[in-house]
Design a protein around this nucleic acid. Structure first.
Lengths: 67, 67
DNA sequence: AACAAAAGTGCAGTAAACTGCCTTTTATAT
DNA sequence: ATATAAAAGGCAGTTTACTGCACTTTTGTT
């Protein structure tokens, strides 16, 4: 998992749910400009931003030791 | 998963591996002050910082849709 | 108890995330 | 072909993550 992956993953999920960037911005209360930059893989988002987005998108993040 | 969880998770893993904060800082090339703040749950780290730490700690991050 | 190592904390500078505003490009209709 | 909606991108201001330095507190060892 790296940053560009994260962006495309969120973009894909958003489209699956049938919402646009503006709607996602309103639902998450994250600035539209931030969402655009993140989906394009052009910024290095903070943990909070990621968690807020995943929550609204019905996704979860897990961390575990590599086997 | 929220920020304080992330901090304690990383701290626990670091101790399991038997290294101190300074060594982790050197291995990851992330500032010692940053690691201290993160383990204490006092900052909102960036995705890059998290991924770098997890990598050196032999951990991985996954994202999936909630069932 | 004394000492050393590790961890925690305040402060200040730099870089970058976050944000809004506005313009341009691209896609999707009619 | 035009009009509309969605996405992309430049720019500038504000906030905050990241960092080093210096000092304090806690933990562990002899």
């Amino acid at each position: 998992m790296h940053i560009s992956e994260l962006g495309s993953l969120i973009k894909r999920r958003r489209k699956t749910l049938g919402i646009n960037q503006k709607q996602l911005s309103e639902l998450t209360e994250i600035g539209l400009r931030t969402i655009k930059g993140l989906e394009a893989g052009k910024t290095n988002p903070t943990f909070k931003t990621i968690l807020t987005l995943l929550d609204v998108l019905g996704m979860e993040l897990m961390i575990r030791t590599k086997k």
